[in-house]
Simulated assay, not measured.
Amino acid sequence: MARKIRWTDADTRATVGVARTGHFSKENLLSVGLTPRRITTLSTGSLKIFEKVGRDVNSGHEMYKLSDLGKERAAELGVPLDVQYYNPNIGKNLDFRHDRELANQYCSLDISCQDCWKTEREYIREINETREHIRENDPERWEEIKDVKYSAFDGGYVDEQGHEHYVEIVTSSYDQSRIDSKCESANLLGGTCHMTRV
């Protein structure tokens, strides 16, 4: 008979956090309340939630992602599979700078802001819906924006005052047009974009 894992609030915070940011370092897992022993429990065996994917070549931090079971558990906890953060380019050559910084920013937020976090896939949907709404309801504005290039943010949240903040981790592959497309998206949606270069 398979062993059943007793679930805690810290387990939820960690699982949802990794679903929203792609990867957590061991330090991120500790910061949301997991103990070293609990990290081991949740990252080994047939019921593992997290998979250790290696050490980041830049920081030396152990990095974790969700296992298939972890992705299912995150969906049960409110982060549907179709919006969980995933970037196939992250982690190649064990370079996790992007997701490590995204996770650090996520973990630095108050729990209330973490609970309002949106992923890149949610912003893709929101940008498309906003553009479609403008196209259908404001032809004059549509003419102004129809050829503007927009791209989604890595994540974002709403603060206690109701202001939306978009988080973008800028890597060396970004050119000015990509940065401009993020600024255009912030203007379209009405929040503030915070870019961090790694």
Rank of each mutant, 00 (worst) to 15 (best):
V198I: 15
N128K: 15
E101L: 01
D99S: 09
K65R: 05
V79N: 01
H133D: 13
V57P: 00
E76W: 00
E160R: 06
G155Y: 04
T12Y: 13
D154P: 13
L42F: 09
M63Y: 02
C116L: 08
H23R: 05
Q84A: 03
N104Q: 04
A152Q: 13
E132R: 12
Y166G: 06
E72T: 08
D99F: 04
F153T: 05
L66V: 00
V18F: 11
I169A: 05
R3K: 15
F50N: 02
N128Y: 15
L30G: 00
N137L: 08
R131N: 07
N137I: 07
Y150Q: 03
K65G: 00
A19P: 15
G54A: 01
K52D: 01
R125I: 11
C113W: 07
E51I: 05
E144K: 13
V57W: 00
R6D: 06
F50A: 00
N93P: 05
S112M: 03
P36K: 11
G155L: 08
L102W: 07
L29T: 03
D110F: 01
E144L: 07
E120I: 07
V158M: 08
G191V: 14
E140A: 13
R13S: 11
R178Q: 12
A75S: 09
Q176K: 11
V18L: 12
T15I: 09
E168R: 04
W117R: 10
S59N: 02
V16I: 15
I111L: 12
G45P: 06
H165K: 11
D99A: 06
Y64D: 08
E126G: 00
P139Q: 12
R20I: 08
M63F: 01
E132Y: 13
R97S: 06
I111M: 07
H194P: 01
E168Q: 10
R37T: 05
T196F: 05
I179W: 03
R38C: 06
V79L: 02
E122D: 08
D95V: 02
N93T: 00
N187P: 05
E184S: 12
P88M: 06
N104F: 02
D147I: 09
E164Y: 10
D115A: 13
R197V: 13
S43I: 07
A19G: 11
G190N: 09
H61D: 04
R3A: 12
V148Q: 13
D154C: 10
K52T: 06
V53M: 09
T8D: 05
I145H: 07
D95E: 02
Y86G: 00
L188R: 08
Y86T: 00
L47T: 12
